[in-house]
């Protein structure tokens, strides 16, 4: 693809830095602030765009594993059992060949997330004590991995006080360490 996406993002940044921002009057701090934010977003986009599919695919895999694990753990009253059956049906209905766009795969993740939400609500309504305990532990483990992925994805925002603890983008996307397992 010519010109490529990185090329265009960098051209946008250069135009902002060298032409547009210097042209903003000194007394228009709102415009200056907006331009600085634009520059920040563009730099972050440049770091992210090429990995976006891999990132979303990883988020899908992790949510699928969590849904699978919770549906296996579910026990208790009727609400918990129904939520588990519905989640297992949804898992079975996942396509053999995953869609190839970021948005399409994100839609699958959202559908699985809604099923997980129902399982959590059911566990608190009539789940057995063992289910609730195991569910809590599973979600904390899932979150440990998934929030590290998300913080790494957005670490260029400079809002993370523990940014030094995060892996590189490459490690986050490729290491097994950041894959949640249902096992």
């Amino acid at each position: 693809m010519l010109p490529d996406i990185s090329n265009r993002i960098r051209n946008l940044s250069k135009a902002l830095e060298t032409v547009i921002i210097p042209a903003i009057p000194a007394d228009n701090s709102f415009a200056a602030e907006q331009a600085a934010l634009m520059l920040g977003h563009l730099k972050m986009l440049d770091q992210q765009w090429d990995f976006a599919y891999l990132y979303e695919k990883g988020s899908f895999d992790n949510m699928l594993a969590l849904a699978s694990k919770l549906s296996q753990l579910a026990e208790g009253g009727g609400e918990s059992q129904i939520a588990a059956v519905q989640t297992r049906s949804l898992i079975a209905a996942q396509p053999d060949m995953l869609p190839l766009t970021v948005n399409a795969i994100n839609e699958l993740t959202i559908a699985l997330g809604k099923a997980v939400d129902k399982l959590i609500a059911a566990a608190y309504k009539d789940g057995s004590s063992a289910f609730k305990t195991a569910m809590l532990s599973s979600i904390l483990d899932y979150n440990h991995i998934q929030s590290a992925r998300e913080r790494t994805w957005f670490k260029a925002n400079n809002l993370d006080p523990d940014v030094r603890d995060l892996p590189s983008m490459e490690e986050m996307l490729n290491s097994e360490k950041y894959c949640y397992s249902a096992a």
Binding site: E33, Q34, N143, S147, E150, R151, F154, N157, L159
Partner: peptide, 24 residues
């Protein structure tokens, strides 16, 4: 400030991480 709130929105996982630490 669409640009600013989207920027701030990208910090959401920082708080998820904090909740996890506290609940653990």
């Amino acid at each position: 400030q669409d640009l600013l709130i989207t920027w701030l929105g990208s910090a959401g996982a920082v708080f998820l991480d904090q909740i996890e630490m506290l609940l653990k």
